[in-house]
Design a protein around this nucleic acid. Structure first.
Lengths: 339, 339
DNA sequence: GTGAAAGCGCTAACAC
DNA sequence: GTGTTAGCGCTTTCAC
C-alpha cells in the first residue's frame, strides 16, 4: 500500500531494526548510517505508521481533551492554550465531548477513551459525573482543570476568592440588593460553580447582607440563559436587584441584552459584573473577574505531558492560577463624556 | 498488559475470529454466540485496541480537522458543528493547527498528518498554502470549507454575494466614502477573503463609487487588528470614512472599541457592518452578514464521512450555504428611545 | 553497532 | 457458522 520500514531498509541496505533506530535518532547507530537512512527515508517519503508504532510500543502518541462543551468561549481559550503546547510535541490532540447533561451519550465513554491516548486533559467536568469515574478507572495519566479529581495533576483558579471579590466590589459600590445568575446547581457541592457560590455567600454574609433566594437564578452558562435569568429578575421580582453578579461573562451578555431591550443601562440602572474576562467583555464595558484561560490550558497540557513522560509520576500537584478584578463601566459608571 | 481478544476468546470458549466478528455485530455469527461473547467481553471490561484494529484493517478510525486558527469564533462554531456530527460516530476527532503564517511549523505537516486519520476536514486554508498541497498529496478523503481545493467535497458560503450585500447596504444608507477592513491580502486571488473583496468592489463600482486605497486597511481578522485598522482610518486619513465594512465581526469589535474611545458612536457617527454573524454582535448592535458556521461544520463533517464510507466516492460536490444580512443599529440607527 | 526474529492485538482469507 | 492461520508495520530483545 504505502512505503514501509522494509522498503527503507531494503533501499538503504540495512535491517529494519536499524532503520527504526536511525529514524528515531538513537545514539547507538553509526552517525554515517543514521544520516544515510534518514536521507533514504526522506527520499522515499517514508512516514512511520502510527498505528503500528503504537501497537508495538504500547504508547498511543496522542492525548485526549475531554470537556462537556465546545461552544463556550472559555473552552476555546483553553483549547488554544493546549494547542500551543501540543504543537511543540509529536503528539496528536484528540477531542472528546462528554458530560454534557443534555446528551444521553450513545457510546459509553470508556469505549471511546480507552487505549486511544496516552493521557487525558479533563476540562471542567463535574466531580461526580459518571465520566470522571470512568476516566479514573482507566488508570491513565490525567491532568485536569477545575475541581481536583481522584488524580494527581490539577489546575485551578481560586473561584471562591474571585466570586468573593466580585461580590465585594458590588457591595463597595453601595449595592445591597444583589442578584446572582449562576449556571445550574450552584448549591450542589459536587459542582464546579459551587466554589463561586460560596465566595458570593461569604462576601454577602461578611457585609451582613441577606441572600434573597428569589434573586438567585440559573442561567445555564449561555447567553440565552443569561437573558432568561435577567427577564425573570426584572419581571417576576417585586423589587428588582440593583446589582447583578453573573457566573460567566456570557450570561452577563444575555442579561445586558435584556436590560437594554427595556431601556436599562448596565452601570447606570443596574450594576452588572461577570466572570471569565473574555475579550468581548471590554467592548460591552462589562466589569468581570478575568481568568487566564489560555494559561490554564497550556499549564494543564504541560502537566499532562510531564505525567506521561514520567517526570512527575502520580502527581505534579495542584497549580492555582490567579484571577483579577477588571472594573469597567457596568459597575462603575465613570463620568466620561459619552455622547 | 490489558485484556485482549484472546482472553475473551478463551473465557467465552470460542476463537478470536468469532470474538472479533461477534463484537462488531456481524450477521454471520450465531445470535446466541454473539450475545454470549458480548456478555463476556462486557464482563471482562474488554475494549479492542484501536491501534491493532487500525493496523489490521488499514483504517485509522478517526478524522482530522485542519485549521490555521483555533482562537477565532468562526472556528469554534464550526468545530461545534463538526463535533455534533462526529459524536454519532465511532470515529475520533483529531485537531491539527497549521497554516498559521506566523508559525514556522517545526514538524512538517505531512509527517503529522499521514496515516493517522481516514480523512481530513480542512477549514479555511488558503488555497496556495503549502499545507493544501501536502494534504492533497496524501491522497485521502478530504472535505473542506472555503475555497475548493484539488479535492471533491467542499462547503462554501457565497462570500462574494455577502460582501456585495454588505456594501450595498452601506451605500443604500447614503454612504459614499466607505472604508474596508480586510484580513491580510484581500487583493491576492489565492486567498479566501478575495471573494469578499470582489463583492465589495463590485458593489462600489455598480454604484459608481471609487475605492480609495487609503481606506482599505488590513485587520488580521482579530479584535486587536480591527482596532489598529480603525485607528489608522481615524488618524492618518485626512477625511475619515462615513461607513466601514469589516471582513469579520471580530475586527468590527475592535473598530467599535476605538470609535467609542474617541467618543464616536457606531451608526451615528460612522456606520459599521461586519461579517460572520456571531452571537455577541447582537449585543453590540452590530449589523453583519450572518454565516451559519455551525451548519458549515456539520455539513463538512457529513461530507467527509460520506467520502470515507465510499458513499460519495471522489466528490460529493460543492454545497453553497446562504448568508444573510442582519441589520442593526450600527448601520441603521433607529429612533428607539435609548437613554 | 547491527541483524534476525519474535511479538504487539487485531482482522480477514480460507478451509472446514 | 466457526476455527486456523497469516499477516498489518512497527519495535525490541538477544545474539553476533
Amino acid at each position: 500500500m504505502s512505503v514501509t520500514v522494509k522498503d527503507v531498509a531494503r533501499v538503504a541496505g540495512v535491517s529494519t531494526a536499524t532503520v527504526s533506530r536511525a529514524l528515531r535518532g538513537f545514539e547507538t547507530v553509526d552517525p554515517a548510517i543514521r544520516q544515510h537512512v534518514q536521507r533514504v527515508a526522506e527520499r522515499l517519503n517514508y512516514v512511520a505508521s502510527p498505528a503500528a508504532a503504537a501497537l508495538s510500543t504500547g504508547r498511543a502518541g496522542s492525548v485526549g481533551v475531554i470537556t462537556p462543551f465546545v461552544n463556550r468561549l472559555a473552552f476555546q481559550r483553553m483549547l488554544a492554550g493546549i494547542e500551543s503546547v501540543m504543537r511543540g510535541t509529536e503528539m496528536d490532540l484528540l477531542l472528546y465531548c462528554t458530560g454534557d447533561p443534555s446528551d444521553p451519550h450513545p457510546v459509553p465513554p470508556r469505549k471511546r477513551l480507552a487505549r486511544r491516548v496516552d493521557g487525558f486533559i479533563v476540562l471542567s467536568l463535574a466531580l461526580h459525573s459518571p465520566d470522571v469515574e470512568e476516566i479514573s478507572k482507566l488508570n491513565m495519566p490525567v491532568a485536569s482543570f477545575g475541581e481536583q479529581g481522584p488524580w494527581g495533576s490539577n489546575v485551578q483558579v481560586d473561584d471562591r476568592a474571585g466570586a468573593n471579590t466580585a461580590t465585594e466590589h458590588l457591595i463597595e459600590q453601595g449595592h445591597t440588593r444583589i442578584a446572582l445568575i449562576h449556571g445550574r446547581d450552584a448549591h450542589d457541592p459536587g459542582v464546579l460553580e459551587h466554589q463561586r457560590y460560596l465566595g458570593f455567600r461569604e462576601a454577602m454574609a461578611r457585609a451582613g447582607l441577606p441572600v434573597d433566594p428569589s434573586l438567585v437564578i440559573p442561567g445555564d452558562f449561555t447567553i440565552a440563559g443569561g437573558a432568561r435569568a435577567m427577564s425573570i429578575l426584572l419581571e417576576s421580582t417585586e423589587r428588582p436587584p440593583t446589582g447583578v453578579f453573573a457566573f460567566s461573562d456570557e450570561m452577563a451578555y444575555g442579561a445586558i441584552r435584556v436590560m437594554r431591550e427595556r431601556g436599562l443601562a448596565p452601570g447606570r440602572d443596574i450594576a452588572m459584573i461577570g466572570f471569565d474576562g473574555h475579550e468581548t467583555s471590554s467592548l460591552l464595558d462589562l466589569s468581570t473577574i478575568s481568568v487566564p484561560f489560555e494559561e490554564i490550558g497550556a499549564t494543564t497540557a504541560r502537566k499532562l505531558l510531564d505525567e506521561i513522560e514520567g517526570v512527575a509520576v502520580g502527581a505534579s500537584g495542584v497549580t492555582v492560577l490567579p484571577t483579577e478584578l477588571t472594573v469597567r463601566a457596568s459597575t462603575v459608571p465613570h463620568p466620561v463624556t459619552r455622547p
